[in-house]
């Protein structure tokens, strides 16, 4: 049923039509309303990230000191912030940093995590035991603490966030991939490959890897959702994109103090943006998981 081939480096899946004419996973996906809803929202934010400043009605950086703290209106649909900047424009343009950072971090962690998981699961023994304990030790620390340690050492920047999230998620993905590889290891095709004189590396990547791709695909989308959440959190704490560049997390951090004054729009709209993106990715993930399981 599942006929998905991975482009090796990026972990991006493309579906190929089945020769038998039965429904391919891709067609099954397109039949699911939850998938379509998730995809539409995701595509919307992708468009914002790519064409941000072209779509935005105003310059997101332009301060209008006479028009600060304006409630939503016909001129400014999402209102303006403390510096009189258009919130709608900042939300639209702000999609870029969060998507870029989260996507880069997830790709990094998927590639590294897959490699580590394959090695742990296939080689087993001492390698697995040592790596397994290290993974558990690293995962005992909250992401934010790990990020803090890094940022203290190398300073805040989007690149730091990518590396921090990428490394932490590498461990999580490695654990999932390892357990899937262990199931595959029970199967006779690996013994058959060894009898053909295949080397371990070749068995891992050309025999086992194609069979764990569905699990990796699901893991990738799950992690992408978490990555968005984590990026937003770190930006909120001031570890990520620095002002005045529009960024949802940073904008919430900058504006939430005004909630008490009744200026809800400058916090609510970036927050809704984060929520909608996370929900969209989860809808996406659930559909993929169900289609692959069927």
């Amino acid at each position: 049923m599942t006929d998905i081939v991975v482009a090796p480096a990026a972990g991006v899946a493309v579906a190929r039509p089945d020769q038998t004419g039965e429904l391919t996973p891709w067609r099954l996906l397109l039949r699911r309303p939850t998938f379509l809803a998730g995809a539409v929202i995701l595509l919307f934010w992708l468009a914002c990230a790519i064409f941000g400043s072209l779509i935005a009605p105003h310059n997101p950086l332009a301060q209008q000191l006479l028009l600060t703290n304006q409630a939503p209106s016909g001129a400014h649909w999402f209102g303006t912030d403390q510096l009189g900047r258009d919130v709608l424009s900042r939300v639209i343009v702000g999609a870029r940093s969060i998507l870029l950072i989260a996507f880069a971090a997830t790709v990094l962690s998927t590639v590294l995590g897959t490699a580590l998981g394959l090695v742990m699961g296939y080689l087993g023994g001492v390698v697995d035991i040592v790596a397994g304990r290290l993974v558990e030790a690293a995962l005992a620390l909250p992401v934010v603490i790990v990020a803090f340690l890094f940022i203290v050492a190398v300073g805040p920047s989007p690149l730091t966030i990518i590396v921090v999230i990428g490394l932490v998620f590498t461990l999580l993905i490695a654990r999932t991939v390892r357990s899937t590889v262990l199931v595959e290891s029970q199967l006779d095709y690996l013994a058959a490959a060894r009898l053909l004189g295949e080397k371990s590396v070749s068995i891992m990547f050309s025999e086992v890897l194609p069979n764990v791709v569905p699990a990796i695909l699901v893991e990738f989308t799950v992690r992408l959702g978490y990555a968005i959440f984590t990026v937003a959190t770190l930006s909120f704490l001031g570890f990520g994109v620095q002002p005045p560049t529009p960024d949802w997390g940073a904008d919430i951090a900058h504006n939430y103090v005004t909630l008490g004054a009744g200026y809800w729009w400058m916090t609510l709209f970036p927050a809704l943006a984060i929520a909608s993106l996370v929900i969209a990715i989860n809808l996406f993930t659930d559909s993929i998981e169900q289609v692959l399981a069927s």
Partner: peptide, 28 residues
């Protein structure tokens, strides 16, 4: 260990398993 066997010996010894679902890589 099969990994230490020369190619001539690998050629000489092969197997047909009980369950072809398990013995054939379903992605190939």
């Amino acid at each position: 260990d099969v990994r230490r066997r020369p190619r001539s010996q690998l050629r000489a010894l092969q197997i047909v398993f009980q369950n072809p679902d398990s013995a054939l890589n379903r992605r190939h």
